[in-house]
Design a protein around this nucleic acid. Sequence first.
DNA 1: GAAAGTCTCGAAAACGGTTTCGTAGAATAT
DNA 2: ATATTCTACGAAACCGTTTTCGAGACTTTC
Lengths: 341, 341
Amino acid sequence: MNKITLKKIAQVFNVSVPTVSKAINDSHEISDELKAKIQHYAKENKYRPNKLALNLRQKKTKTIGVVVPNILNYFFTQVFSGIEKVANERGYNLLSCISDESYDKEVKTLEFLGGGTVDGIIISMAEETQFKNKIDHFQNLIDERTPLVMFDRVSSEIECDKVVVDDYEAGYKTTSYFLSTGCSTVAVVTAIDHSSVGRLRVEGYKKALHEAKIPYDDKLVIRLGKKDDLELMLSFLLNYKKVDAIMALDEITAVEVLRIVKNRGYKVPEDISIIGFTNGKLSRYVTPTLTTVSQHGTYLGEAAANKLIDRMEDKSVKEFSTLTIKTSLVMRNSTKKSLDH
Amino acid sequence: MNKITLKKIAQVFNVSVPTVSKAINDSHEISDELKAKIQHYAKENKYRPNKLALNLRQKKTKTIGVVVPNILNYFFTQVFSGIEKVANERGYNLLSCISDESYDKEVKTLEFLGGGTVDGIIISMAEETQFKNKIDHFQNLIDERTPLVMFDRVSSEIECDKVVVDDYEAGYKTTSYFLSTGCSTVAVVTAIDHSSVGRLRVEGYKKALHEAKIPYDDKLVIRLGKKDDLELMLSFLLNYKKVDAIMALDEITAVEVLRIVKNRGYKVPEDISIIGFTNGKLSRYVTPTLTTVSQHGTYLGEAAANKLIDRMEDKSVKEFSTLTIKTSLVMRNSTKKSLDH
DNA sequence: GAAAGTCTCGAAAACGGTTTCGTAGAATAT
DNA sequence: ATATTCTACGAAACCGTTTTCGAGACTTTC
């Protein structure tokens, strides 16, 4: 009373397994009469070939594994939908996993995906992994010859294809924009200072300050740990100096900063301008709506998927490459108009 | 230069494949000396057993397929994390897919998951599937004897385990609460009127009205299609009658309603109270913060996963059952205080 | 009427493992 | 010295499928 297989059908008709296989696949080798009988029986009994056996035989699964750190982040859902679009178009299935920002889960997930389950993997590193800088599990994948594409949160020590956001330029562009609207004291709030992404944004910020001949003041950069209280740290900041612009390195932080700043009686953007990273839904619905940095997640996802599939399908050993995607500012109401022009 | 297999190792040491297998699995049948050599070589060359082969042999994958309609909906991400928690605890992997509310994708996804790829499936129907009421693909799964648990958006025509939210009671409770705060004209905005979930909430709404001896007025229920303009329909509603409470059946709609109502000069909750379904992030960050119906997604996910694993592991044919989970109101600032008590 | 083609099927091998069973030789017991 | 038990490995079967090849039966051809 278990699942139906070729063998069972073969027994029913008293023929061999290969014959049934060929009949079902409409091979010319089998007589029309027998084919008709077998096909009818197969349909009747809802025969479905066993995927595992098929994949084992063909040595491929037509499936891509995608590992994202979390799905509460709008950027990742965007990337994901980009990957999905391309995968669909090019005939691949997606097996998506969430590392939940945890190193252990990431390791377990990659162990699961490796060893034949998928043909290739697209991944963005978990926060904890970047923090610990443990990358053996990626190297294992490479050693196993599983094609790998890393995106956004990548490791420079792993040799593979990569797609990243130009976070350095984003930090630069955002800061410059603040300055062009007449702001002079730009602060940064980051909850991701241990990540390459966060650091690059701050580097860009420094560059913009430098160009404008504004001295860099480390006290203007709030680095939030897991248990730090944003409200408290922000009040220190506001007491420390008359800040008139804040760049928040993720969406939730941006929205929180907005709320706190408003609560304390500041007008946004008249007193303080705010720009948040990740152009998600929250930013569109808060009051005032937030100007954000769009990382073009969908496009990034598409690029990553194409890179991976290209490599999976073309075995010719090309050099690994890194694609850098520019960001753009989405203007809304938490910033003033630029004075330039 | 391809992946390393037992056969390759066997050739190196000039032994048989089973011997290598046993050596690697530390069987007592193999001499310590040979085991040491083989294990060392395997480690050195990063041997990893092929998952497909293993799964084919054991006839199980220790993997659960999860299909959610979308991940932009906070409720589903909650359910997902609940499923993940239990799956982890009980030693199962998760293979998560997104149907993107599309019938075709759902069919393709289930075809992918069926046929041995996973041991069991947890799914919530895509919007389009519910609309078209096509359920053959579910029946196929059942016929294949793949254990199936449906949650939230379920089909009454499919016989399987189910976990649902008590949407009827939720609609009732929400409406009753409005009335208890002194509201008298409660409207409903639904973008999901073709789904069982949406309809049940409206039924609950009707029951509450009936109990309060308020006649049901169909004009107070706005049913949004894909292309309908909420702003326009809402302005008709507000012109039609002096509405003082609005129940919105999903989070985005709730937030939109809030924005539109505020724009038109109404005070929330003084002039109009609002309650939204799905207790997500948006509701916490808009101004004023939104009172919402929490569907306890995480708990639901845990329950669904436990139900599925129980069935997968215990072959004794139990009756299918449906678990109904109660909602609760999360009080915030878009509603007035209850006059009761 | 023999040679050469079709047609239609089955046997065997392959994918990469695990498991059951058999067995040769060594070690132990009697 | 013979019977018995270990020890340490290999053979074979198996999971479910596809593919290559071979072969019998029947047709066609000259």
